[in-house]
Design a protein around this nucleic acid. Sequence first.
DNA 1: CGGCCATATGACAGCGCTGTCATTCGGCCG
DNA 2: CGGCCGAATGACAGCGCTGTCATATGGCCG
Lengths: 344, 344
Amino acid sequence: MYFGGNFGSLTHMTTAGPNEPHSAPTLSAVARLAGVSSITVSRVVRLPNLVAPETRGRVEAAMRELGYVPNQVAGSLASARTSSVGVLVPTIANSIFADTVQGLSDELEPLGYAVILAQSRYDAAREDHMLAALLSRRPEAIIMVGSPATDDGARLLRRAGIPVAETWDLPAAPIDAVAGFDNYQAGVAVARHLVAQGRRELAFIGGDDPRATRRWNGFKDTALELGAKLPRRLILERNASGSVAALANLPGVDAVFAANDAHAIGFMAGLRAAGLQRIGPASEQPVAVIGLGDLEMGRLIAPALSTIRVHGDAIGRTAAKLMMTRSGPRQVDLGFELVLRDSG
Amino acid sequence: MYFGGNFGSLTHMTTAGPNEPHSAPTLSAVARLAGVSSITVSRVVRLPNLVAPETRGRVEAAMRELGYVPNQVAGSLASARTSSVGVLVPTIANSIFADTVQGLSDELEPLGYAVILAQSRYDAAREDHMLAALLSRRPEAIIMVGSPATDDGARLLRRAGIPVAETWDLPAAPIDAVAGFDNYQAGVAVARHLVAQGRRELAFIGGDDPRATRRWNGFKDTALELGAKLPRRLILERNASGSVAALANLPGVDAVFAANDAHAIGFMAGLRAAGLQRIGPASEQPVAVIGLGDLEMGRLIAPALSTIRVHGDAIGRTAAKLMMTRSGPRQVDLGFELVLRDSG
DNA sequence: CGGCCATATGACAGCGCTGTCATTCGGCCG
DNA sequence: CGGCCGAATGACAGCGCTGTCATATGGCCG
């Protein structure tokens, strides 16, 4: 047993001698001290107004005296409610998904839910593994970015018998709830805009995860449809360094759609280094750049970044609400907006 | 009871009729099907090499057949091990702390630990509340950014009897483990550098949380010591918009230390708008700007952001390692570096 | 004034596992 | 060849709560 430090003031030494390891006080220890049954203590914690004020006072004093912290794992086992939700994201660092987790968590924490966070690192095997690990903790719902990468993962979720929210996309055959936007249409919107501005040599840079690929498809299909050349696609590492150098691999390019703002900003740094950037409106840019995500940073740099704004926070909040209700629509399209600034 | 969808192929329909709600299969259901006792199934899950290969095979087949997912909440209650850690951060979105959570999680997930994430939103009452909520789930350790804001919070942690790691700072009287850096010295380093460059009208912008305040103290003390004027301090909202406008409140300023890179970049946008920014080395900048955090973005903008680099990821990993061991040093200073680029 | 109901409290079993202590069965060594 | 030991399996109690049903108490109204 580990002891983090001393055990507080002497008034707390009632149950154990000063030196013997004590485990956390239980419901019945509190009950004994307060002279009531343990179920009454349980009620004071969960349903206080079923308990007479006088009794409640006595119990609360006992809880304070012992420093009682309820054991939710025992409670969960008994009640079959864990008040927790599993959240699976590709990655949490330097990421567009942090907003979603924040939104989720803001919605859920006040209701007493705990957020169990897991990362798949864009790896299907790891995703399946984390899904199983989450499920073994019996969360009341699973909220994930994207959809299960494998059939095994999907089956696991279906058989779990709990609400599942897939986010950041609009899957064709959702498992249950959805809070996202149409990645294909995002690509379409960017291609339309770029071609309308007279750009012809388009390129897409970024990851090759399913959502990025859907953006790429919308982008490519639309560019072709509107008479631009077949866009090029450059798969990049997840950090921005690759995007700084991307320009070298895209000779003659005059417009770039980046899978996210970080890549876009990295690419712009490369542009600047190559002397292909102007401090001025989009029409003066030798190479137009459009990002996705609408990071605050994009607004602050020069030229200001044009981008597809998505509502990461709202996605998280919506997913949280969807998991808590059976009624109403189960699929919510939060949309996106093409925000035009100076970069393209 | 909720049903996320259909229940998979017919081969899985052995235990319940197609329409009756079934709850998740238990250990003993698997045991019955495999013709062994439940404890043997438990061993197959946890200690497979204590079970004869032939038996193990039979049990594994039964588990697959039923789609068994172990119930860790029951296991935790029985074994008094939850394999989970509570992680408390001020905020997860657009934040410097996401790296730490990622580092933590990368270290812990392979070992079977779950990360229970909670946000304090820089609010002492909420922090205490989340701490109690975390503790009620009996995590095997608590890792938090900073230190408890109240005595109640500290007492809660001490009495919990589990490892506690405070991070992102070096508290004078730590509860247990520490993985951080010296915020005061970070302020000192920045002030030294700025004054040595001949700056005299210094200012500090950013939040007023304990860590930012320590940076401010080091900054101010050193500036005065070295003969600069008394630095000004501007408390800003947590988003960058405030920092864009901050310049108006700092007439005559010639050097700014921002509590984090986001504020720094915001402030630089304000500088640019006011015509007080050059594309060139620090010596040509009318107003020097130093950030903290070393966001990738800072390297990509022009002028490139000078900053205090801290090792958020290493902080997370170190905290994770500290919680898992009793031996060796309990306080680790991960340090920081002043990274000089073009902004100051 | 008796029956009834709302209020307050309790007894009891059991949630699904795991720790601990048997038990069985060969094989192997003195 | 008997005793002993390791390998494989099982029985049993109990982790700390909560759901469910029972019980006690005291008005309050017909």
